[in-house]
Simulated scan of single mutants.
Amino acid sequence: MSQAAPQTRVDIAWLGELPCRVGQILIDKTPGEFLLCHRDDAGRSDLATSWTPYAASEIARYDDAGQYRRLKTAPNLRHGWLLLLQDFAALPLALDLFYPGRVAAYEAWSRDKLTTTRFRDTLARQSGMYRAAAKIGEQEADQLIANFCRSDGGCLRTILWKRTADAPCASTRLPPEKFDVSYDQTGRCERTLPLLCQEACNLLVAEARQVVKDGA
Results as ranks from 00 to 15, higher is better:
L77C: 07
L144E: 01
D180P: 10
A133Q: 08
R125Q: 12
R131Q: 14
W161N: 02
E190S: 09
F148C: 07
C197D: 11
R9P: 07
N147L: 07
G23C: 01
A167N: 01
R21Y: 11
L97N: 02
A216Y: 13
R9Q: 11
S171G: 06
D64N: 15
P194G: 08
L35Q: 05
E190T: 05
E58G: 13
L203K: 14
V103W: 09
L95G: 11
P175A: 01
C189F: 02
L97F: 03
T49F: 02
R44M: 05
R163Q: 15
T115S: 08
I159T: 08
I145W: 02
Q3N: 09
C20V: 06
Y54H: 07
R163D: 15
D46W: 06
Q143L: 12
L160I: 01
L18N: 04
A90L: 06
P176M: 08
I59K: 03
A200R: 01
A133K: 10
L71K: 11
T115H: 13
L15G: 05
K213G: 01
E33K: 09
E58F: 11
V212Y: 06
R120C: 07
D28T: 06
T164N: 04
G101T: 10
G16S: 11
A4Q: 15
C169F: 08
R131P: 07
N202A: 13
A216F: 09
A132I: 12
